[in-house]
Design a protein around this nucleic acid. Structure first.
Length: 546
RNA sequence: GCGCCCGUAGCUUAAUGGAUAAAGUAUUUGAUUCCGAUUCAAACGAGUGCAGGUUCGAGUCCUGUCGGGUGCGCCA
């Protein structure tokens, strides 16, 4: 929250307490869409009509009188419409944000709104049996950006990747790699029916051949299969990590299913569920009574063949998060997993944790569109389009920005032509261009520094820009709270627009007016810092030159 | 059949239950020849799929309905 907003909020809270003995949790301060309605506004008088049993305009009037007495940053206050209170801030107060921004530098925008709250965010978590493709790209960028925002807002946030490296699919992986390995030597090979057929499996086989030659060929396939499983897993994970790094996604923690197995956590959870009477046996399998906790069917935990289903280790995975002290869990899952939410929440509740401590954000479908037509498969490989292919085509910046600019739950058409475009139609370039332009201006200036006063920055264009820069910490806090990086994209577009508008209206480096030049340059510097930080929350670069 | 997501200017999207539903893009017009552009200003353009309801106030909440998408394994 900006300093000005904080002051407004705190003062109003104090007034409500003193005058009406009301404790109001959150006084809403907004920047009106129409600047005729003030620099800031609040609807608090309307919200209090019921409690105070009075006309909102009268309440507003009383609050205004007090405000005038108590707050000297206010230029004037007006009551408008049904009872809005509109504030105009003294221009000099507004401009003080410039020095705040310059002082805080790359920490401007950071805030304490999440202080003391711990939150574990699990995202991507793709199986180590294939390449990261388009479906993962949206969730990866989103999860990464959400965590950047959470951390900047003071949350204790852990970014976690859950690796499904045990179970049936790893057996299939081992068999697939082994088959491809034999193929390289011209031997008989048989890909399992449910095996993996991707290029990545062939690449792994080639790597094994290069490193070990025919070492794993002659022995009994039954004996060597464990090697192919382990090596397959290792190389698949390495490639996934490389792809994620290339895509600028970092994780703090990688949790392995196999490790959960080895530490006995899965058996332990199973036993606990049985002990709590949450299960029953039927047809030789063990079922979880999830319908008792809001699911629409009961679910199998242990199959009649003695193996666990996918669900059981994943319950253990979630319980382990709680056991490490995280009170709030966020999962970012693909749309195809939405049916899975009810059973996981059921498990969490059944195990004695609050149901709402898990929130699942669903990544809706993405369609790639080029020249108005949907692209289903990569032209080059004939398979699903991978993250790497996409980024090599349009760049990491554009890929991330596009995914982040739309709310997660909207079905998204990803327009490749637009993402490639080096024109202002492309929002990424519009934003980056603004940054490059600012950089040029500052390079050409003699000296840019903080000033004691900004009394000349009083035009509409300057006020607009100042107000908006001032707003940044609130935007970051709100984006973190609602886990909505798309709000940061909106902010960036608008900030760039305000800057361009200001730039268009005035000559900034003006030798005939050195006093004005100095003040404006400081404003440009503050804009630069804010824009850079905003782009950074998205993992998008801010180029000095383009 | 059951569940989930989405329906807002031609298009892509905004809008903590608040003020005349906001931007970009496209289209039209004008400015700038400049601190390098890919910049700026303006016009035109929707009453939020449809029908009810709650509220001082609904794109937002509730009910129903239509359309599009997606999911409903002892797969993971």
């Amino acid at each position: 929250m900006s300093k000005i907003e904080t002051q407004l909020k705190e003062t109003i809270k104090a007034i409500l307490k003193d005058r009406y003995d009301q404790d109001v949790e959150d006084v809403m301060i907004e920047i009106p869409k129409d600047s005729n309605n003030g620099d800031y506004a609040t609807n608090i008088a309307m919200r209090l009509t019921k409690v105070l049993k009075n006309n909102p305009r009268i309440i507003a009037q009383e609050i205004c009188e007090e405000l005038n007495k108590r707050l000297d940053i206010i230029d004037r206050v007006e009551i408008a419409g049904p009872g809005f209170i509109n504030f105009w801030i003294k221009k000099t107060e507004l401009a003080n944000v410039i020095n705040t921004v310059i002082d805080q530098g790359d920490r401007y925008g950071h805030n304490e709104s999440g202080k003391g709250q711990s939150i574990l965010v699990e995202y991507v978590s793709a199986n180590p049996t294939g390449i990261l493709h388009l479906g993962h790209a949206r969730g990866a960028a989103w999860g990464d950006s959400v965590c950047r925002l959470l951390k900047a807002s003071g949350y204790d946030c852990l970014r976690e990747y859950y690796i499904n490296d045990a179970g049936n699919q790893i057996d299939m992986l081992g068999l697939s790699v082994q088959a491809r390995y034999r193929e390289l030597f011209g031997l008989d090979f048989k890909l399992p029916e449910d095996g993996y057929h991707g290029q990545d499996i062939i690449n792994i086989a080639v790597q094994i051949k290069e490193e070990y030659g025919d070492k794993w060929l002659n022995e009994d396939p039954e004996k060597t299969i464990q090697f192919f499983k382990d090596e397959g897993k290792r190389l698949e994970m390495k490639r996934i990590e490389d792809d994620l790094k290339f895509y600028r996604c970092d994780f703090d923690s990688w949790i392995s299913e196999k490790k959960l197995v080895d530490e006995g956590r899965i058996d332990a959870v199973m036993e606990k569920m049985i002990a709590k009477g949450l299960t029953y046996s039927e047809d030789g399998a063990i079922w979880f009574k999830s319908t008792a906790y809001g699911d629409d069917k009961d679910r199998v935990l242990k199959k009649s063949n003695g193996f666990y289903t996918y669900l059981t280790p994943d319950i253990a995975n979630h319980i382990y998060k709680f056991e490490r002290g995280y009170k709030k869990l966020v999962d970012i899952w693909g749309a195809d997993h939405h049916g899975y939410i009810a059973r996981m929440k059921a498990a969490i509740e059944a195990m004695g944790y609050p149901k709402d401590s898990l929130e699942v954000d669903i990544v809706q479908m993405v369609r790639l569109v080029e020249n108005g037509e949907e692209i289903k498969m990569s032209k080059r490989t004939g398979n699903a389009v991978t993250i790497r292919e996409l980024c090599e085509d349009i760049g990491v910046d554009a890929a991330r920005y596009f995914f982040l600019s739309k709310a997660l739950d909207t079905h998204m058409d990803f327009d490749l032509n637009l993402a490639r475009a080096k024109t202002n139609e492309n929002p990424v370039y519009y934003a980056q261009y603004a940054y490059a332009r600012i950089s040029i201006i500052l390079r050409q200036a003699d000296e840019v520094s903080k000033l004691d006063t900004y009394d000349l920055l009083v035009s509409d264009k300057e006020t607009e820009l100042l107000k908006y820069i001032n707003e940044f910490p609130s935007v970051v806090a709100d984006s973190a709270l609602t886990r909505s990086p798309n709000k940061v994209c909106n902010y960036i577009q608008k900030l760039a627009q305000y800057f361009h508008s200001f730039y268009g209206a005035y000559k900034i480096n003006d030798p005939d007016n050195p006093a004005m030049t100095k003040q404006r340059l400081a404003l440009v510097m503050a804009t630069k810092i804010t824009l850079k930080n905003a782009l950074d929350f998205l993992g998008v670069e801010a180029p000095e030159k383009m």
